[in-house]
Design a protein around this nucleic acid. Structure first.
Lengths: 341, 341
DNA sequence: TAGAGGAGTGTAAACGTTTACAATACCGCG
DNA sequence: CGCGGTATTGTAAACGTTTACACTCCTCTA
């Protein structure tokens, strides 16, 4: 099967290998007649081009790498589905690199580039605050990189990106709690390093400030973006001397941990504590109670980011680098109620 | 960076390109002195081998493909983590193909092979009952394939596999329900095509038969392995004229849907209905109530299956094809109670 | 009918490695 | 000092494509 090369086809079809190559890749350059001859020979021999040789010759792997914090998080698997579908559409394969929530340094990205030879990279994870290294190292290398979900720091601003408006979305979530008469609202956020988390925290603080509500010391805690982290964070919140009536979580994964911990403490959701999540992963509607959360168009983000990358790969530096903001939506379920009732 | 080739290094180090290649790949074949010279030159030039050229020359992509039903299912993401860790260890990249629960045909696998040139394939999904096509097509091609999680049909028996004993595990789960005095036990299983599901169903039926308990018509329903499917299945079960007191689900994903639907119907878990799952995904301990389920060593399966594949790739047909059974474990949480109480 | 121009095809080089084989250098022994 | 043998290095071919360039036909125009 795969041991027959273009030479054999050329021999059978009685043409040169160049003509075979052309009838496959640029059919308009050959006669109808020879094209048919070649097609026949291909069918006879069961030839299929050696993609290794093609990649080598063309200098293209047709592989892109996506770097993400955690493959386990349903939000990212949803984004991945979008990426994969667009990739398949464009003839790319996708390899995944998981950062396990650690922040990437420029060197690590560099290492990934040389080891996994890829045509481009999609960053769904935070990169180190020393973003300049990457961007300068990269303007040198001019490697196509596009950023998804994560908010973009100034240093990376010359790369295209697609994400929601995290600040506005977080504000909307918190404003909803405020509209339900909550005044003591806490937040569980991700680790320091994540810009995206920082933005959501900023949205929370802005909403609180605009409503002239205080944010007490110890009301903003790090939940590590994991279930376990959120459970610990929730315990701290419940033991706070001025216990909040509502908790806003920076992602649904943590909201699930939070829900569980509140109930383990013998309290009710939403009767004693209201909870709001972020992402609208597919488990959000089957938690108990179903989770009120911010919905992101995860698959769409994935598709857009992949198409954006393709354009970058094809167009080189031509592709614009403006951030692309996609819409979010507050979806109201049953994890929030009025604290007075 | 990547535009400097081995030639440049050879020029700087004042040796031939063959020597450069050797000092990298077979250091024991060159003098200490030249090795150092070459190392220096590499550092000076920032050379790193062109992996495309290497792949081409060596006829190896160092890429493996894994075919799985659904990337979203946390069980599979856990298996993937194991695969990825082993792959990284061995210098392989991993690309994923999702079947979306459809059964694969031999042709489809063939197409994947020629389009994505890979060194091997890990099958975590069901393949079509016409397994002979694949195995014969493959003995021709002698492509390294190994099977994980899925039970192996007779036709595929010449490929290595690693999985738990699904029949025994399902029996154990059902026996546990029986030991808790349940007599009316239903099951939500996956689609027809999945052998793995068939085995779990077989385990269920065997346990029931051995305990001389009847399996009523309509007690074994298809839940599609999805949350939505399980909810619908659960609704049917709850409306059954002889309503079961316990439901055994073929995976945790469905158990989550089941839990939710039971509670939506105004019933309590486990007080009115007991529920048992399968897989022990990481959400299983934070459902309400925490889920009693069968735990599979998912990451370990992933690692073993990958190492197995490596051996197949290296050894050719040398590697044994005996199935490798890994241990499962019943983990008891709070979704089951005695129906009398 | 000569010549220009274009369409179709062939020849051969190139991509960056690895590796069989040849050549050279080095060592120890007689 | 010469010789055999081994350790190290160099030369060149090969992997399967793509593609620049050259060549051959053919057609159309003047």
């Amino acid at each position: 099967m795969s041991d027959v090369s273009i030479k054999e086809v050329a021999r059978i079809a009685d043409v040169s290998i160049a003509t075979v190559s052309r009838s496959i890749n640029n059919p308009e350059q050959v006669t109808e007649k020879t094209r048919l001859k070649v097609q026949d020979a291909i069918r006879q021999t069961g030839y299929s081009p050696n993609t290794l040789a093609q990649s080598f010759r063309r200098g293209r792997t047709n592989i892109v790498m996506v770097v993400l914090p955690s493959v386990g998080d349903p939000f990212f698997t949803a984004v991945m589905r979008g990426i994969r579908s667009a990739a398949k559409n464009k003839g790319y394969s996708v390899v995944i690199e998981e950062t396990q929530f650690n922040t990437l340094t420029a060197d690590e990205i560099g290492a990934m580039l040389v080891s996994n030879q890829t045509d481009g990279i999609i960053l769904l994870a935070s990169v180190s605050p020393f973003g300049t290294e990457i961007s300068s190292a990269n303007s040198k290398r001019r490697l196509p990189i596009v950023i998804g979900c994560e908010t973009v720091s100034r240093e990376l601003a010359d790369f295209p990106s697609v994400h929601i408006d995290n600040i506005a979305a977080a504000k909307e979530a918190v404003n909803y709690l405020i509209s339900q008469d909550h005044e003591r609202i806490a937040m569980i956020c991700g680790q320091e390093s994540s810009l995206l988390t920082k933005d959501r925290e900023l949205g929370y603080r802005t909403a609180m400030k605009q409503a002239k509500l205080p944010v007490e010391d110890g009301w903003v805690v790090d939940g590590d973006l994991t279930i376990a982290g959120a459970r610990k964070a929730t315990r701290n919140l419940l033991n706070h001397s001025n216990r909040p009536t509502a908790i806003f979580c920076a992602n649904d994964e943590m909201a699930i941990g939070c829900l569980h911990e509140v109930k383990s403490a013998g309290l009710g959701v939403p009767d004693d504590i209201s909870v709001v999540g972020f992402d609208d992963i597919r488990y959000a509607e089957v938690t108990d109670p179903p989770l009120t959360t911010i919905s992101q168009p995860a698959e769409e983000i994935g598709e857009r980011v992949m198409y954006r990358l393709c354009r970058r790969i094809d167009a080189g530096n031509g592709e614009s680098s403006s951030p692309e903001i996609v819409p979010h939506k507050l979806v109201i379920r049953q994890s929030v109620t009025n604290p007075a009732s």
